[in-house]
């Protein structure tokens, strides 16, 4: 429950960030007087070498980080669910063919692939990031969904659905998939935490969201070359990432416990 409260708080902050941010996140407030200032009452998280307010940038950066995480996981989960469901339900050669494709794709290191694609892309917007992360993240989802569908398709109620004249598509999408959903939701939740980290890493490397638009990763990057002097540039966005990812993981673990009847009594 504490995890959920933190996640809700972070999402609310991201939604109202433009209203509560004390300054314009991309404005240079005074390149001579206000650059690289440590935290103070006027600038609780300090300012960066371009005299921008770090608190405002962290607040606005949460929007990009969370939106990229949520939407790319949604993309990956949708693709992976449909792909895995078709493979699991069709079975036989179709299943073999589809899943060997997934095995092959999974043997490509994802981070290196992302770095290559993003480096070749040129200007990377949040939308590009969502598409690229989403399209490389569905492989493990498809494996999960396939194994769930494989287990469910021999159930009596699947035979019963066929016995009342349901088409294969109806049987799969209306009867089998809803029953396979809870592990998918758990994995998607944990996936959000992963993608927040992944996006931060890519942005830190300069391959994610492009400055001056802030994201947690590139705010850290702005102070990385002087990390001893400008500690506040790394610590505050770092804390934002840490707290958010931990909260999302706690929620994911809670969902997993709730979805697994064998662990219900322990939790």
């Amino acid at each position: 429950m504490a995890g959920l409260a933190v996640v809700v708080a972070v999402v609310v902050v991201a939604l109202v960030a433009p209203l509560i941010a004390p300054y314009d996140a991309v404005a240079q407030l005074g390149i001579d007087t206000l650059k690289s200032r440590p935290p103070s009452l006027a600038h609780p998280f300090g300012t960066d070498p371009l005299s921008r307010d770090v608190l405002s940038r962290v607040l606005l950066g949460s929007r990009v980080s969370l939106a990229v995480a949520a939407l790319s996981v949604l993309t990956a989960t949708t693709l992976g669910t449909v792909y895995g469901a078709v493979a699991g339900y069709a079975g036989g050669r179709v299943d073999d063919l589809l899943m060997r494709g997934v095995d092959a794709a999974l043997s490509i290191p994802r981070v290196l692939l992302l770095i290559t694609v993003l480096a070749l892309w040129g200007h990377v917007s949040a939308a590009v990031l969502i598409v690229v992360i989403g399209c490389t993240g569905w492989l493990s989802v498809s494996r999960l969904v396939r194994s769930e569908v494989l287990g469910l398709r021999s159930r009596d109620w699947v035979t019963a659905a066929r016995a009342l004249g349901a088409t294969p598509a109806r049987t799969l999408f209306r009867h089998i998939l809803p029953n396979a959903l809870s592990p998918v939701i758990v994995s998607a939740t944990l996936g959000v935490a992963n993608v927040i980290l992944l996006e931060a890493g890519l942005s830190f490397l300069g391959l994610g969201v492009q400055p001056p638009e802030p994201s947690w990763g590139n705010v850290m990057q702005d102070g990385a070359d002087q990390i001893r002097a400008l500690w506040w540039m790394s610590v505050f966005p770092g804390l934002a990432i840490l707290i958010t990812v931990m909260a999302v993981n706690v929620v994911g673990d809670g969902l997993r416990a709730a979805a697994d009847p064998r662990r219900r009594h322990v939790a």
Partner: peptide
């Protein structure tokens, strides 16, 4: 052709109604 027969002209009742009904609908 089968879909027009199953459930419409021939109904089927299974042995165990617990497992033959979809648990989430």
């Amino acid at each position: 052709g089968w879909r027009a027969v199953r459930g419409a002209r021939i109904g089927m009742v299974f042995q165990d109604a617990m497992t033959a009904l979809d648990p989430v609908i």
